[in-house]
Design a protein around this nucleic acid. Structure first.
Length: 800
RNA sequence: GCCGAGGUGGUGAAAUUGGUAGACACGCCGGAUUCAAAAUCCGGUUCUUUUUAAGAGUGUGGGUUCGAAUCCCACCCUCGGUACCA
């Protein structure tokens, strides 16, 4: 009796321990076999001090289920893990507690690894990498060198985003749309600084091409918008009494005849000069500079501006038009100057109305209308435009560009919103930029033989607005010892997004000290399936594509795109807010794992809803999953029988079919429901066939790996269940002899009828009409129409 | 403002070449078991009504159709992205 009770509930703690140990010892992928390779990768994570929360599990658990499913479909699956271990939090922790980032990071990784193992993931720990290891950042520096040699890494002085809290510059991608830092939340200010950039803009056009990629549409469109391609013309305006020219970019060169003024951004190099240092104009420039980004971007505010006092010449009609400066023109987009067409641009119109500037109308809605007096912002037909008159604006664009080119006033121009990637950071815990400066201040690459160019230890962490590396005596001494007296090291470090832009290339050969990777190891690439949060759409995912293309052009890679398939798991929120340590709203899975086990927990996460939707956390339903797993435990413990129950057999094959299809599409929630239905249909049986037990266990395996390994073992198998193929369904067993059809009268369901498969239409209809509850509605009515959809539905349409 | 996704019971959600709305699960109600509880098992559970049955019902209002959660039009709301990009 006692043994009976033990067998009724599975001892998940013992089982999990047993199999985690087993996988630990048998987890590495055969990386030499790339014939049927499947590289399945979740975005690696930052080793934070706190324990893994529900959000982490949601990232790793379901993806592991998918990886295990692929493995059971005969693929050689590679699912490595690593840590994005450079970065600000460890450094901020060091500032606060005086503990070296290397030590805190090491500790964090240790706990994190233990926890990752508790998920039961099929992770290949032999391939583990950490970006803060010398063995990794050496190659980060090597990539920098290659980019530098090919002019894709360069230094320039520019207005850059400065985060006053974290005391470092940020890339455009790291500044949110409200002008705050993605990381610290501080309001970002603009500062002129000499910084290192990667020339991502060289790849703007190619980055717009997503052919052959299985990526979420949303992410594709976000990247396209971020890159922001617009086609138009650049036009040069000459200036009365000045030698200089003003170049503008416009997408509406067809409205050039309506350009009645120019606007320079306050930061434009000519603004001061054209005003002849007029005090009012200078004050306006200073005022806009002091406005923060938030104020500048406020669309509701009135547009402001001031006349510079100078005039430009509209090349197409030689009219003198005033040059204004206004902060509604952004210095950072296009040329920082525009031609204003108040008749056909909403913003220019608002400005012209306010300052009473001349408005010319040069586009009308129809060919027949030659004069209008209200603004039109859409395309139309040219009027009051000399040789363009009567043309569709679309055709006029081509014509005017031809005219501009012939007369030397401008040319066709494609402008991108994307700007080069700023990679310098004034922080400590990152990859040192492998550059030294000679006594004249010219930069030189640190030669490859000195890589890794080590991050020094003797630094003052506390940020003072300059890079902590500047306080290292060792770094300066090292530089002078190698290069000579008066040489100085670069003291900025690289953005951690540089580390993460290529880590997936390193995994298949992560321990190689002699090469970044081998040709052979690249057979694992590109990544077949990449899973991670959608918040990386215009940062990490864009950088990774750029680096891949750049390395391809350097003949280091032979493919164009890093990630064939991309999937964004949804976000698990807590009371509507994203879980984060700083908000203090994280939910630890520990309690649930203690009570129900790791298998139950990961299945519960998958059962909550569609994987790409996430949802708000609640623990209400977890019991149901625990019950479900216990039922399976009981079914496998049932006495075996040789008798085949036809209904159960059919349901089993149907379930195999649907579960395979669902897992293939990462529709975990519906796959689990199907398995529950199958389980419920046999739970009351006294005995069940071994074939059923085997197939049920195999289908459960990707979802509940620990329990399935144990059950597989109990069923008398010596090898791991993941060496087994996923069950295949037999199409012949899906066919039904009897089927249920629904009978409606006027679209309302009145009856059901079970019919044999081969019954002809008339017989079916006659049978339907005889049913009591159908007859009732047909009597004394006129039958107008009979709809018959074979094997599905009958609908009688009656009148009266 | 623009782009994208979404809105279904008390809750998480199923159902998309148009064909029985609410599968599966939680919770709740009732029962069995128990000294009692937990666990387990059985039954019920969209709403309304005059409950062996009928009517209504998938954000709102229209439309197409024998038939609409599903297709079309207009609108409301929520979430994500983006925002003076010339």
């Amino acid at each position: 009796m006692a043994s009976r009770i033990i067998i009724m509930e599975f001892n998940f703690k013992k089982i999990e321990q047993k199999w985690q140990k087993f996988w630990d010892e048998n987890s590495s992928t055969n990386l030499l076999d790339t014939k049927k390779k499947y590289y399945c990768l979740t975005m690696f994570s930052y080793p934070s001090g706190s324990n893994l929360h529900v959000g982490h599990w949601y990232n790793y658990g379901p993806t592991d289920t998918y990886a295990r499913f692929m493995k059971m479909n005969g693929y050689n699956v590679f699912q490595p893990q690593g840590f994005d271990s450079f970065g600000l939090p460890a450094e901020n922790y060091a500032i606060k507690h005086g503990i070296h980032p290397r030590i805190s990071t090491e500790q964090n990784i240790k706990t994190m690894k233990l926890q990752l193992k508790s998920i039961g993931g099929m992770f290949d720990w032999d391939a583990e990498l950490r970006t803060s290891d010398e063995t990794y950042y050496k190659w980060n520096q090597w990539i920098f060198s290659k980019l530098y040699d090919s002019k894709l890494a360069y230094q320039k002085e520019a207005l850059v985003n400065w985060d006053p809290v974290d005391q470092t510059v940020l890339a455009n991608e790291q500044v949110l749309s409200d002008g705050t830092s993605e990381r610290s939340g501080a309001k970002v200010i603009q500062k002129p600084l000499k910084q290192w950039f990667f020339k991502i803009t060289d790849y703007a056009e190619e980055l717009l091409n997503f052919d052959g990629l299985n990526w979420p549409k949303k992410t594709v469109s976000m990247q396209k918008n971020w890159i922001g391609k617009s086609t138009g013309a650049s036009i040069k305006f000459s200036i009365s009494n000045f030698d200089e020219k003003i170049e503008v970019f416009t997408t509406r060169p067809d409205t050039l005849f309506g350009a009645t003024y120019l606007v320079l951004s306050p930061e434009h190099p000519l603004t001061k000069k054209l005003s002849d240092n007029n005090l009012k104009v200078i004050k306006y420039i200073e005022d806009s500079a002091s406005k923060n980004e938030l104020q500048r971007l406020d669309l509701n505010k009135d547009k402001t501006g001031i006349f510079t006092g100078s005039y430009a010449i509209n090349p197409v009609n030689n009219k003198k038009i005033p040059i204004w400066t206004a902060d509604y023109v952004l210095a950072s987009y296009g040329t920082g100057a525009i031609m204003a067409v108040p008749g056909h641009d909403e913003r220019d119109n608002e400005f012209a109305m306010k300052y009473d500037i001349n408005i010319e109308y040069v586009v009308s809605h129809s060919k027949d209308i030659e004069s209008i007096n209200t603004p039109i912002y859409e395309e139309g037909y040219c009027i009051n435009s000399d040789f363009l008159n009567g043309l569709k604006t679309k055709d006029a664009k081509t014509q005017i560009i031809k005219w501009l080119e012939n007369n030397g006033f401008g040319k066709k121009h494609i402008n991108f919103r994307l700007r080069d990637w700023l990679i310098s950071r004034q922080r400590y815990w990152g990859t040192p930029i492998p550059i030294v400066y000679d006594p004249d201040g010219n930069p030189h690459l640190v030669p490859e033989k000195y890589l890794p160019w080590k991050l020094p230890d003797d630094v003052e962490y506390k940020p003072k607005g300059t890079s902590p590396l500047g306080s290292s005596k060792e770094l300066l001494k090292r530089t002078e010892d190698i290069f000579g007296k008066g040489w100085k090291p670069e003291i900025d470090t690289m953005d951690t997004f540089v580390c993460s832009s290529w880590y997936y290339l390193r995994y298949p050969d992560s321990k190689n000290d002699d090469e970044i990777f081998t040709k052979k190891s690249l057979d694992w690439l590109p990544v077949d399936c990449y899973v991670g949060g959608a918040e990386h759409a215009t940062m990490h995912l864009l950088y990774a594509r750029f680096i891949t293309k750049a390395l391809r052009d350097l003949k280091i890679l032979n493919f164009d795109e890093p990630f064939k398939k991309l999937y964004h798991q949804g976000t698990i929120t807590k009371d509507g807010a994203k879980m984060s340590k700083s908000k203090g709203n994280t939910v630890a899975p520990d309690r649930f794992i203690e009570e129900y086990g790791s298998d139950t927990f990961r299945i519960y996460l998958m059962f909550m809803g569609p994987y790409d939707e996430g949802g708000d956390w609640n623990d209400k339903g977890i019991k149901g999953i625990y019950r479900f797993l216990n039922k399976i435990w009981k079914i496998v413990a049932l006495p075996s029988t040789d008798k085949i129950d036809k209904d159960i057999d059919q349901l089993m094959h149907q379930t195999i079919k649907v579960v395979s299809e669902d897992l293939c599409k990462m529709k975990f929630n519906t796959a689990i429901s199907r398995l529950m239905e199958l389980v419920n249909s046999v739970i009351k049986k006294d005995s069940i066939s071994d074939e059923f037990k085997n197939n049920l266990t195999l289908m459960l395996a990707p979802l509940a790996p620990h329990l399935s390994e144990e059950l597989w073992n109990i069923l008398g198998n010596k090898k791991t269940i993941f060496a087994q193929p996923f069950p295949k369904y037999n199409p012949l067993k899906l066919q039904k002899d009897e089927m249920n059809i629904v009978i409606q009268v006027n679209g309302k369901v009145r009856a059901n009828l079970s019919i044999s498969k081969n019954m002809d239409k008339d017989t079916v209809l006659d049978k339907c009409k005889e049913l009591e509850n159908v007859k009732k509605y047909l009597d004394e009515k006129e039958l107008i129409k009979e709809i018959y959809v074979p094997e599905k539905i009958v609908n009688f349409v009656v009148k009266g």
